[in-house]
Design a protein around this nucleic acid. Sequence first.
DNA 1: TTTATACTTCGCCAATCAACGAAATATAGG
DNA 2: CCTATATTTCGTTGATTGGCGAAGTATAAA
Lengths: 121, 121
Amino acid sequence: MRSVLNITKALADENRLRVLVALQPGELCVCQITEFLGLAMSTVSKHLSILSQAGLVEGRKQGRWMYYRLPEPGGGTEASEAITWVARSLSGNRQILEDGARLKALRRVTPNDLCRKRKTC
Amino acid sequence: MRSVLNITKALADENRLRVLVALQPGELCVCQITEFLGLAMSTVSKHLSILSQAGLVEGRKQGRWMYYRLPEPGGGTEASEAITWVARSLSGNRQILEDGARLKALRRVTPNDLCRKRKTC
DNA sequence: TTTATACTTCGCCAATCAACGAAATATAGG
DNA sequence: CCTATATTTCGTTGATTGGCGAAGTATAAA
């Protein structure tokens, strides 16, 4: 029950839903996610921690940067099935479509360049 | 986004998850659910309202009693798919198994008898 | 080795939410 | 019609949660 409740609670926030959908095309680093959501980095870190505890994202460190990605799809776990449900349920949503457009631009900038230009990091 | 968030927020409470699984075998009336959860009836009513707003349950009035049930399965809606996920994810859970045993006894008592014996109603 | 950097954790605050009892409501039963 | 009843709504309270800036941490870079 604990793990299912961790998942459902993790999904009960709009920003965290947006992150999950944003990670569909591939991993992002914390500074990109921070830029994407427009929140304080400490807040983003907390959100990612909640998602990670629920098994909805996985993190890896590369150099100075921390990347997060979705778990292996088709894993048959509750978490991966929940993510599939989220992605399908929000596929036509307007906010998510706008997010997608902005993300394309964001993915073209390296974390290094992003951090140089911004006080994000 | 609003409707998906309504669903995920509705699922982010243990008692509401238990109600959804309890309704799998068939509808229950408010007083049965109240007895089942062991909460105040006003609290149960509020929980059911949240579930109803999210499209996760449907209500019907019969005489003095208000019954709630799950929406038609296989409807392909986000709500019905979410319920499927919940039921599958919690199918082996201990609390839910214990719930199931208690529910069998509870379903054998009519709402009328339940209300007579108890201050539930 | 020291300094810089990306990220995490902590502490605080305001908003939201689950629980309860009381009041209100709709309607069944006498 | 009046009374009883099952349920819903309201108001209050304590707990939880999302947001922020500051402090702490791990480690890359100089």
